[in-house]
Amino acid sequence: MSTWHTLVEAPALAARLGAPSLVVFDCRHDLAKPGYGRDAFASGRIPYARFLHLDDDLSGPKTGRNGRHPLPSAEDFVALMRSHGVSETTQVVAYDDAGGMYAARLWWMLRWVGHDAVAVLDGGFAAWRDAALPISTDAPLNLPHGTLSLRPGVASVSADDVLANLASAAFQVVDARAPDRFRGENETLDPVGGHIPGAINRFFRDNLAPDGRFKTPAQLAEEWRSRLGDRPVAQLVCQCGSGVTACHNLLALEVAGLSGARLYPGSWSEWCADPTRPVAQGD
């Protein structure tokens, strides 16, 4: 049975539903309406899917200085995955209804704890619905407790690493936010507008075709290479507002066959919480 590592199409997922080695997570969310995801899940979801909330399940405690969606401890996240039946041999699939912007967070987090049998449903819930596949309101099945273990996974960087990089230029920061927010305009989520000095902008939605699915690997590779020039992918650090949509850029890079970039999980919301850290504005 094939293993999915980046994206999966709705018919392929449908064909494997109910398999004991598959766990599907509904990651729908709305930053402006925190209750939206649970309501959407209750009104209809992919059969057998289990719900994860961005704030409650895919984030850790906030201190006021560590960003809007700080990572939980790796140990706590592994325990959460075990409680949902995830083991080393489990294929995980995540979906949302926002082009993968929330599902990619779970995709990255599982790879962060060393589990790479994880993929995002390309096109999300809309693709599932458009394919006339079944939608359920049944309660999720009780699954045996999983045995997922914490193993070395993909790397991340800290705010201190990013601060030191202002002088060393050892890596290139890529900001996934919309261009206006990158420039410091129309900032509604964080108290300070602007971006990390030296960062370049790649809006995460530019990874998607008009139908809401990811562009082809060839197109993504061409666009990213055009944006990055000769910089090796291993020297990229992706960030956004709070470490969520940056994961979408990391997923797009993997789809394009460009592996090795890292995440700055705290992202802009952590960076701007310390007034001593420099801020750039404009392009």
Rank of each mutant, 00 (worst) to 15 (best):
L7A: 07
A10Q: 06
L13P: 06
L13A: 06
A15D: 14
S21F: 06
S21R: 09
V23P: 05
V23W: 08
S43Y: 00
L52N: 07
L58V: 12
G60T: 05
G60M: 01
P61E: 14
T63S: 15
N66I: 07
G67M: 03
G67T: 06
R68E: 12
F77S: 04
A79I: 11
M81I: 02
M81P: 02
S83A: 14
S83C: 04
A94P: 13
A94H: 11
A94N: 13
L106I: 11
W108K: 09
W108D: 13
H115R: 04
A119P: 02
V120H: 00
F125H: 10
A131D: 11
I135T: 15
S136K: 09
T147V: 05
V154Y: 08
A155T: 14
S158E: 04
A159Q: 05
V162L: 14
N165S: 12
V174N: 01
R177V: 08
A178H: 13
G184C: 01
E187G: 09
L189C: 00
V192K: 07
G193S: 05
P197L: 14
G198R: 12
I200V: 14
R202Q: 06
N207H: 04
A209Q: 01
T216P: 04
A218L: 08
G229S: 03
L236M: 14
G241Q: 04
G243I: 08
T245S: 15
N249L: 12
L251N: 04
L253V: 01
L253E: 10
G257E: 00
G257F: 00
L258N: 02
G260N: 01
S269M: 13
R277A: 05
R277F: 00
